[in-house]
Amino acid sequence: MPWLQRSTLGLIAAGLTLGLFLSPPDYQQGDSVRIMYVHVPAAWMALFCYTAMAGASAAALVWRHALAHVAARATAPIGASFTFIALASGSLWGKPMWGTWWVWDARLTSMLVLFFLYLGYIVLAGAFDDRERAQKSAAVLAIVGFVNVPIIKFSVDWWNTLHQPASVLKIDGPSIDPSMLAPLLLMAIGFATYYFWVLAIRMQDEIMAGKIRALRLRRAESEAGDRSS
């Protein structure tokens, strides 16, 4: 998909140019606010990928469409990467702003759980010799995990308001200026096209791998047939 490749590279290049050179530093956070241009789009994509994965899994279970399984499976590592980026860049942003690498607040904890869910999905999808079974088990997990994301967010919210004063964490959303919004959106769309680009690559890979398995199976069958005749 050359057009996906071109738009991904173009959008991210434009987003980086605007974000690193042309957007002003924040009046409170200074230049550290530029971390936002990777952090926020990555966090959005982390949630988007999980939604896509759960949706594809549900579609695969309901309509038994093989391509939906392939899409869900190909999405998992991309979503895990975005979640990792969001966690790591958030940590690097938190250190200068809040004075700590990590806080057990609602946002961070639910993102961490999302990362675990991705990892669990990937491991489960690879844990069976029987392909069909691996796909279906992983699909059930993706759907069950989707229910958990809002629950986690809500429960940790409550947990924290009781135990931790929301002093450090309350970054009053700097009413965002167009000069900051533009690079943010460019990066977000660039990340989205990156997702579709890599998704296409991974799905093509999976489909070809499926063809290889089918060819091997047919050959094994015909050899067995030759021998018996």
Partner: peptide, 14 residues
């Protein structure tokens, strides 16, 4: 603006 140790690693990790 003094945040080099935080900004650049974020972009590098991504």
């Amino acid at each position: 603006g003094g945040y080099a140790g935080y900004v650049w690693p974020s972009f590098a990790i991504a």
